[in-house]
Write a protein that binds this DNA or RNA. Structure first.
Lengths: 231, 231
DNA sequence: TAGTGGTCTAGACCACTAT
DNA sequence: TAGTGGTCTAGACCACTAA
């Protein structure tokens, strides 16, 4: 009937029918075969379009049961996790950083639990303040398993941000990431140049190489920071 | 050579080579055609595997230039945006809510800007406290364009959460979402039963139907709330 | 068990872009 | 302009699952 071309056009047409409420939330839509006949294309093309919509959370698909319009749409959002330096430079500011301290020690329980460490295992602990145009904009608190590093810690931590050095040097196989909010401690406030108790936006990441923990990092962004995406 | 089967096996094998540092960050990997020959499968199958890895941010692909291992991996994370009631019930708690107030008025500048409103346009303003096992767990502040509602505001706001009523009733075509942190105001603290100034985790969403604004909502989660995902 | 989505194939043409 | 990824096709078989 109508004549969309390409899987993106089919995706758009399907979305449109949902928006026009031709197909209501929870309702079954025609099979791939029927849609392919209607649109005059191969079933694989319809499949591609519907699969993308299912990944986006707009449709729910099950073999034999068919394809339904999701009852709770917009359940998924894909975030770009920024690389600190690139984010700052992308705003046209000059990037810099300052290593606050660096030591080998036994991490606190919370970190050990997050990395599933064996009791007593020691890690490198590096704390870094990141700067935009010379002003503090992010406090990084990182625990690092030196055992997985090919050549130990980099000799000159003042020329390469540890963060970038890591992603270029160490492979990983799995990880998790979490977002939350926390009040700034006195130390964090002093380092970031904000009031104690100010609301920080926290990003925590952990990564593993197989079952071997690599690193756990906590990024504390001062008030005003927003992580956003379109749907 | 090796014998993976299916695009998922190929994806796994490619990931493995990156993890083993056979293919270093920034390096070009073989063309789809060569990989298809090596794996003994069709090029479309390799394409599917590499496309998924590119979507995940592990590879960067450009026509003619070829496929490279991303220099800054793990740049994307897909979050499940929870539906409030389902999230609470999923924890085995009883869901409830209480409408704090509800009025028609002109929204503040920030909301008007976010929704790109014409000057002087009035919206419904509904503030709701969501409860888990009877205890406050989320404060919702919503502005709503009644003009797009088929039958106006629902007659009985005490039986259906406005949030769910909306997603089931109103179509949307675009939106954005943002995460940030903020200190609790005195009123928010009182409603949520926390200390004033406590760090709230804020989710803000805006949705449109074409160019017509539908709703802007701000969700304030008390300390302890975490939004997390695996990579 | 039958219906539906998931995937694969072999080949083709197109779109983009480094050179 | 030539190389590479992006997509489409027509058909096939398989995997899952509702009935």
């Amino acid at each position: 009937m109508s004549a969309p071309q390409g899987w993106e056009a089919i995706r758009a047409e399907v979305l449109d029918r949902i928006h026009r409420r031709d197909w209501l939330p929870g309702a079954i839509i025609p099979t791939e075969e029927k849609l392919a006949a209607e649109f005059g294309c191969a079933r694989a093309t319809v499949n591609r379009a519907l699969r993308e919509l299912a990944t986006a959370g707009v449709l729910e698909r099950r073999r034999k049961a068919g394809t339904r319009v999701a009852t709770h749409p917009v359940r998924k959002a894909t975030l770009d996790i920024p690389v600190i330096r690139l984010e700052i430079e992308g705003r046209g500011q000059r990037y810099g950083f300052r290593v606050i301290d660096r030591a080998e020690s036994e991490p606190p329980m919370t970190i050990a639990a997050r990395l599933r460490l064996a009791p007593g295992q020691r890690l490198w602990h590096v704390r870094t303040l990141h700067l935009a145009d010379g002003r503090p904009c992010l406090f990084e608190d990182r625990w690092l398993n030196a055992a997985v590093l090919p050549e130990g810690l980099p000799a000159d931590p003042d020329t390469t941000s540890l963060n970038e050095w890591l992603v270029k040097t160490v492979a990983y196989t799995a990880g998790d990431i979490a977002f939350s909010a926390a009040n700034a401690t006195a130390e964090e406030a002093a380092l970031l140049g904000i009031e104690p108790g100010a609301a920080l936006f926290i990003i925590e990441r952990s990564t593993w190489l197989g079952a071997v923990p690599i690193t756990a990092v906590r990024l504390a962004h001062p008030p005003g920071y927003r992580l956003s995406t379109e749907m």
